[in-house]
């Protein structure tokens, strides 16, 4: 029985890098997550994190170029729900973006960086890798076996 637990299910969606596709991405992720019985509250957090990641890709990796590709892959095991988002745009290091200081933001009229902070707050793991000249991947994962 134990060996079966390690089997991973997979699912994939490919869309163009346009903000109009954000809702399709959210629907795709929430359908996948709800299907395996993740509580709605957690699903809401996951889709917000995925939305933020994709918004970043559209803005920073593709710089609003509308024909880029965004591939969203879902992986889940008993312990973990993982979303991997792949793009072929310009590499950017989300991990290096510092947590926002709202007061400074307020003074400077800045709005970026909030998304990154949200992703880190809402998910258990946020990782980024860039394979130069090939693709970039953002990995978001949520542990499912937490006690609370």
């Amino acid at each position: 029985m134990k060996s079966k637990n390690h089997k991973l299910e997979e699912n994939e969606l490919t869309v163009k890098s346009r903000t109009e596709n954000l809702s399709a991405i959210r629907n795709f992720v929430s359908a996948g997550a709800l299907e395996i019985g993740i509580p709605l509250k957690i699903v809401e957090n996951i889709i917000l994190a995925v939305d933020e990641a994709c918004t970043n890709i559209i803005k920073h990796a593709y710089k609003y170029f509308p024909e880029g590709e965004i591939i969203v892959k879902l992986k889940f095991s008993r312990e973990k729900f993982t979303v991997i988002i792949i793009d072929h745009g310009v590499p950017f290091e989300p991990e290096t973006i510092p947590d926002p200081d709202l007061q400074t933001y307020y003074r400077q009229h800045r709005v970026g960086g909030l998304g990154m902070y949200l992703m880190k707050s809402l998910m258990d793991e946020v990782k980024y890798v860039s394979v130069p000249g090939k693709y970039n991947q953002v990995l978001l994962s949520k542990n499912l076996l937490t006690t609370h």
Binding site: R26, L48, T55, V111, L114, G115
Partner: peptide
């Protein structure tokens, strides 16, 4: 029903 940081950003942009 839903708000992301891009939406929150709008309030940041106009409050001052």
């Amino acid at each position: 029903a839903y708000i992301s940081s891009a939406g929150l950003g709008v309030f940041m942009a106009f409050i001052e």
